[in-house]
Amino acid sequence: MIFRSAVCEALGAPALAMATTFLAFGAAVQAAGIGLGWALAAAQLVYGMPGQMVLLAALGAPGGPLPAVLGAVAANARFLPMAVALAPWLGGRGAARFLALPFIAVTPWAMAMRRLPQMPVPERLTWFLGFALTSWTVAGLSTWLGFVIAPMLQGWVLAALLFVNPLYFGVILAGETRFAPARRAVLCGMAATPLVLLLPASWALLGAGLVGGTAAFLWSLRVEQR
């Protein structure tokens, strides 16, 4: 019952947002000349769109896979604090909570942090798995569809579809600016963005993220010490 309720909840607005963004990712992989297997593996096993997009963008740059991977890991570094924050709400001790491991991503995490605290402890993990499995399935199907339809889309229509990802993350970032530390990270990230144009392409996003993120962290420490 609780599983079915979570599936229904996931099939609303979250599924629409997930479908659009993973459709765009599938189309972006196709446009980059990489295979469907790679697209599906990225969508289902990385399951973190920021890192997926950063990796895809950095693969075209010279410098080998290492800087591309480091930049993508940095973009998905939020998995660590997200998992730390989510774990106490999942209920289930020991191994059971690790069932949630592959599904910790922005959309399921944000919804879970909103819903789980109001739910009886024994129902929490089941709810999370129902919601997350549905979102994960939508992500895979949308990636496949985006990859297949990309060649049928022409010029600026395909470009507009690819623009869904920056829009999606722009909205997520704007939503997070309600909280002061996140607001500082976004502001410092904006200030560090010119580094993307100045640094070697393969290190550009990682460099801007490290400089901006570290500056934001130090800014927050300074504010708290006052």
């Binding site: 920021p50 998905n76 939020r78 970032l173 996140a182 990270a185 801007a208």
Partner: peptide, 9 residues
Amino acid sequence: AAVSLATLT
């Protein structure tokens, strides 16, 4: 978390 947000920005 700050590096993650800044990279995404």
